[in-house]
């Protein structure tokens, strides 16, 4: 059971992130939810890479190593995630400058108002 704990944590993070992303009206929290969601997936990869008795890569000692490939993949995925967050924040700044609020319902109401 104990060795499965990280997997459960990963799934929990994915669920929490998705719930916040879907449920919260505040756009910043939606972006935060997205980040949590992605972190859950990263954790899944890193957990899958760990092996019984493995040790960190790049250590000069002999012995079993953790598989470094998923870590490299996740480094790439983290960079992708950072870029996504950066774009999202830039969009949030624009939305805030335009409508003065970051609540989705309020922004939608403002857009509807502008249309009429």
């Amino acid at each position: 059971m104990l060795e499965r704990l990280p997997y459960l944590a990963a799934i929990a993070l994915v669920g929490i992130g998705l719930a916040v992303l879907v449920d919260d009206e505040h756009l910043v929290k939606k972006v935060l939810g997205l980040n949590v969601f992605q972190t859950g997936i990263f954790l899944f990869f890193v957990t899958a890479a760990a092996r019984e008795g493995g040790s960190a890569p790049n250590v000069a000692k002999a012995g079993p190593y953790a598989n470094p490939l998923p870590q490299v993949l996740i480094l790439t995925a983290i960079v992708v995630g950072v870029s996504v967050t950066a774009v999202a924040l830039a969009l949030l700044v624009r939305i805030h400058a335009e409508y003065g609020t970051l609540r989705e319902d309020a922004v939608r109401a403002a857009i509807e108002e502008g249309r009429e």
């Binding site: 939606k30 969601f37 997936i41 996504v84 999202a88 949030l92 624009r94 939305i95 409508y99 502008g114």
Partner: peptide, 20 residues
């Protein structure tokens, strides 16, 4: 238009969830 920023953000959120 400001609506474009909101549409882009929605696209970003949904698209990133899909890719993830």
């Amino acid at each position: 238009r400001g609506a474009a920023a909101l549409a882009a953000l929605k696209y970003l959120l949904v698209g990133t969830v899909g890719a993830s």
